[in-house]
Design a protein around this nucleic acid. Structure first.
Length: 572
DNA sequence: GCCGTTTTCGGCCCGACTGTTTTCAGTCG
């Protein structure tokens, strides 16, 4: 199988980090890191591009030298330059960089002087007080390293958006009670609605920032205070989530918010453009020489730089600056645009509520229709429906529809796509449904070619409507199965089918990168909650957040349509 | 190593906090 973008990116990241420890040219290291990021965020398979003879040196951050290295990686599975470099270091040396307070310089000193090459070595050396004897280290640094080493071993993963959400709300509520605080907001990847967050970034304004920071570090849920300065603090919550808090004067609010909103790459790109125009942008404002032009309002930054306002969800330096300049930014979809939910379960399979309860709950959310999509009977799904049970369900839906007002229940199913690409329910029954949601629930390890073929074969069934959770990933739990995404997207359009944006916080599948790629190829989506009870119908917001990150507009989503228009578009 | 309405060479974002440095290096975001 071809090497994945993530694996190629990882090679360049390792290369950059090892070169950093070696003390290599700083800007070359940045170039490798930029390339790694670019590759990781690319929707198209870079290996496939190489195999098809595309000129990858035209991609941003990838020039002739790195392109050559990528070709080598695709052809041989490895990079000779990295292989040679790795021989100079022990295998786990890069783990040292995961420890807060240890960067490349200190890692090199620790390795050269004490032959420390893993977190275990590091902890042992600290316990034996060998580190304090090194030049540039002290007993205080040694203690810090000891504490942080234990922490580095425990974490190292990102948190799901939905896990961070209650913490954000609690901290905001706490900080709003601070005396003298003017504004307090969440920024960073959370505000940009990324599916996972590494840490939380918060910004506040006050005439007395120090007082606000001093209040912040007394937040009751704190496990550890990493930094405690006059305008800034970093803490670790008991749940191991890191929170960076920054407080500035009101006149710098917009600039500070913009900076801490990120992404780094978006902010960096704007700062570079500012330099070209003899301006300087930092957290405090936009400066021409020493004169502060603006800073109190985020919108002013974009205006000053000649851009229209860019929504936080788009700030990844993935084309939003160009689109803004050309007036081609998308009108991002909102929760209010949604008229129905097309994927949910009831007690007919593994759901917890009845059909009627689900429909009533959906009505309260303002929906005009829902599709009931219980599982088909198949080995991998417990309590799936056979034909007899589905028949019973269809009759019950008819009865409820006669009774209900202001909402329509659509007949559907979440049917398994079997390994050979057939659907686990007879066509004669599928034919009676308003729509068919189909998904892969087993055999995740097929090759990209086989898995793609399996799904495309299923789409040939004339009753196939929506592909559920297209890549099957579970955040922090299961990798997506291998697929040729470009082919999937093209064929989806060609065959008149649709792709789901599954709003379960654990899934968020498709992800933002694929959403944008699919949208550009003309794919239309259904944003659905895959609810198993009434409460999780509220997960719709997570789906909307991800869709917005993928540049998705109302017109790209079929469950924003009226019931009549939806039925029309579902006809194949 | 990348990049370029001018430039194929010479730039490459900018600032806070920590420690113990009496003027700054290392790290982080």
């Amino acid at each position: 199988m071809s090497i994945s973008n993530v694996e190629i990116a990882d090679i360049f990241t390792r290369l950059a980090e090892l070169l950093e420890i070696q003390g290599y040219n700083h800007f070359k290291i940045i170039a490798y890191k930029n390339a790694a990021r670019e590759i990781a965020y690319l929707g198209n398979s870079i290996a496939k591009m190489v195999e098809e003879g595309d000129d990858i040196s035209k991609l941003p951050s990838i020039g002739s030298r790195i392109a050559k290295k990528i070709v080598e990686i695709v052809k041989t599975g490895k990079l000779n330059k990295l292989e040679k470099l790795q021989k100079k270091f022990p295998p786990h040396i890069l783990d040292l960089l995961k420890v807060e307070g240890i960067g490349p310089k200190r890692a090199k000193i620790l390795y050269d002087a004490l032959h420390i090459s893993s977190l275990e070595d590091l902890m042992k050396a600290a316990q034996e007080h060998k580190i304090r004897e090194l030049g540039g280290f002290s007993d205080k640094i040694e203690q810090k390293i000891l504490d942080k080493t234990m922490f580095a071993k425990k974490i190292g993963k990102r948190f799901m958006y939905s896990v961070a959400e209650p913490h954000v709300n609690a901290i905001l509520a706490y900080m709003q009670k601070t005396e003298g605080i003017l504004k307090v907001l969440i920024a960073g990847s959370f505000r940009r609605k990324k599916d996972t967050v590494g840490d939380l970034d918060m910004v506040a304004t006050s005439k007395n920032p120090k007082k606000v920071i001093d209040y912040f570090v007394k937040y009751p849920d704190i496990k550890d205070i990493v930094l405690h300065g006059d305008t800034r603090s970093t803490i670790i919550l008991k749940s191991n989530i890191q929170v960076d808090f920054r407080c500035v004067q009101a006149k710098s609010y917009g600039s500070a918010l913009h900076y801490f909103m990120g992404s780094r790459y978006h902010v960096l790109a704007i700062r570079k453009l500012a330099v070209e125009r003899d301006l300087k942008i930092n957290e405090y404002g936009i400066f021409r020489g020493k004169q502060d032009i603006t800073g109190s309002c985020e919108k002013d930054i974009y205006k000053t730089m000649g851009f229209s306002y860019i929504q936080p969800e788009l700030r990844e330096n993935r084309g939003e600056l160009e689109a803004s300049k050309e007036g081609k930014l998308p009108h991002l979809i909102n929760r209010e645009d949604m008229r129905g939910d097309l994927h949910m379960h009831t007690t007919y399979s593994d759901g917890q509520n009845s059909i009627e309860e689900m429909a009533e709950a959906a009505k309260k959310l303002g929906y005009k229709y829902v599709a009931i999509t219980d599982h088909s009977k198949h080995l991998s799904i417990v309590h799936g429906m056979d034909e007899k049970k589905l028949r019973l369900q269809l009759d019950e839906i008819d009865r409820i529809n006669e009774k209900l007002k202001d909402i329509t229940i659509l007949k559907s199913i979440e049917v398994d796509i079997l390994e050979d690409g057939s659907l686990a329910m007879s066509d004669s029954l599928l034919k009676e449904l308003d729509l068919v949601v189909a998904g892969v629930h087993d055999k995740f390890n097929l090759s990209a070619k086989q898995q793609t073929k399996r799904i495309l074969k299923a789409m040939e069934n004339p009753y196939f409507s929506i592909l559920a959770h297209p890549t099957g990933r579970l955040i922090n739990q299961r990798e997506p199965y291998s697929l040729d995404m470009e082919e999937l997207f093209k064929e989806t359009v060609q065959k008149g089918c649709f792709l789901e944006i599954n709003a379960q916080p654990k899934r968020l599948d498709l992800n933002d990168i694929y959403e944008k790629m699919a949208k550009d190829l003309g794919v239309k989506f259904a944003i659905s909650t895959d609810s198993h009870n009434m409460q999780s119908l509220n997960y719709m917001r997570y789906g909307i957040y991800q869709a917005r990150r993928g540049w998705v507009e109302k017109g790209n989503v079929i469950n924003t349509l009226s019931l009549d228009k939806l039925k029309e578009i579902l006809k194949r």
